[in-house]
Design a protein around this nucleic acid. Structure first.
Lengths: 204, 204
DNA sequence: GCGGCACCTATCCTTTCGGATAGAGGACCT
DNA sequence: AGGTCCTCTATCCGAAAGGATAGGTGCCGC
């Protein structure tokens, strides 16, 4: 199984190559930037899998991915990064990458991940995708009080102020106050907007 | 590597076992329902991985998963199913399953998936997760006209009728009409509710 | 003890929504 | 030619939302 690893960090590139070569089943080629990688692909034919560092010279975000994919033809291209977020990983997949590997990944998982991707299976570490519930919660939720969260919950169910008031055993005017505060804190222009922002942020 | 496969369909169970045993690296035990599987786990010690059929006798949805997990201790338990939806798969992961395998999965991917999960890595086929954007679109979106979708888009951005009217170069009353229609079609009680339903369904 | 904060209530007012009803033009199909 | 559907418009009305302002309570930390 022939791989191409492209990374501008010498240490990362060499250790990855050494580790994978050591498995016996992989034959690893190296490149240190995107143009170098594309040249390699074009001269030495498509690889079973190409691994590109997300932050290496020539990549320019996801643009470099398209170039490498063009050179690879039908064969898969994956990205790796030490810093990228879930959003980037998802965008990479949407842009046609066969997978996305954080550099923090356990070495033994790496072997299987590479094998997976060379086989045509998409791969992203799932804890990477599932983590989306925790991150964005705080920046917004921290600023909301308990009552406000309760009212927000009502908003997101499309309830009228009067209904929320009944549910929380309060006066309608009070709900209006909370809604106003919520709109201010969430920078929403009205209740609908506030509900959408909350939904978008994964608060509800 | 020791596996336990529990499935009430003889054919599935036997072929899976044969295929995995053939790889040489797996030692496969079998069970044909949940109680049988749990007994096996308790008597023959925890396995490196337990595969449970989602629809087998004794499972009762995700309840059986908890039971098997209790017997397995720290070791991983995965579900498999031929019919289950993304939602079920996600719930399974949330309930502590190490992975979820559709029975439609390519056999060669299966080997790696099993190895992955035995290793403690979560696994779900990604096309399974990403498909969520397409499925739920039609049932709702089909019933909405082009104009209605445009108005709905405004709703989801928290715009007032007047603003939507300006954007689409229409009269405000017309927007009110569309909003009313939208609420009826989406079975929403008001604009906020309609926006949330649209968001929930992935329409926006 | 006092300020700050979260919380609750009240009154007044304007704007927006939501619903009912009615009319009319255009596209498409039969 | 008639029917159906989408589209846009109009008027009227009551209900809801949104904003401003002015209170009151209780809890906590300084």
């Amino acid at each position: 199984m022939r791989l191409l690893i492209a990374d501008d960090h010498d240490l990362v590139r060499e250790t990855l190559a050494a580790f994978l070569s050591n498995e016996g089943q992989f034959e690893v080629d190296l490149a240190e930037d995107l143009p170098g990688a594309c040249d390699k692909i074009r001269t030495d034919g498509p690889y079973d899998l190409v691994l590109l560092d997300y932050g290496m010279p020539g990549m320019n975000g996801l643009e470099g991915l398209a170039e490498a994919r063009a050179a690879q033809g039908e064969k898969p291209v994956a990205l790796m990064s030490g810093t990228a977020t879930r959003e980037v990983a998802q965008s990479a997949i949407d842009a046609g990458a066969i997978g996305f590997m954080p550099k923090t990944m356990a070495a033994k998982s790496l072997i299987n991940a590479v094998r997976f991707m060379a086989m045509g299976e998409t791969y992203i570490p799932l804890d990477f995708l599932n983590a989306k519930d925790e991150g964005p919660v705080s920046p917004l939720a921290e600023r909301l009080t308990g009552r406000e969260m309760e009212v927000l919950s009502g908003l997101c169910r499309g309830l009228a102020n009067k209904e929320i008031a009944r549910e929380l055993d309060l006066q309608e005017v009070t709900i209006k106050l909370h809604v106003k505060t919520l709109c201010r804190k969430l920078e929403a222009k009205n209740r609908t907007h506030a509900a959408m922002i909350a939904k978008e942020a994964g608060l509800m």
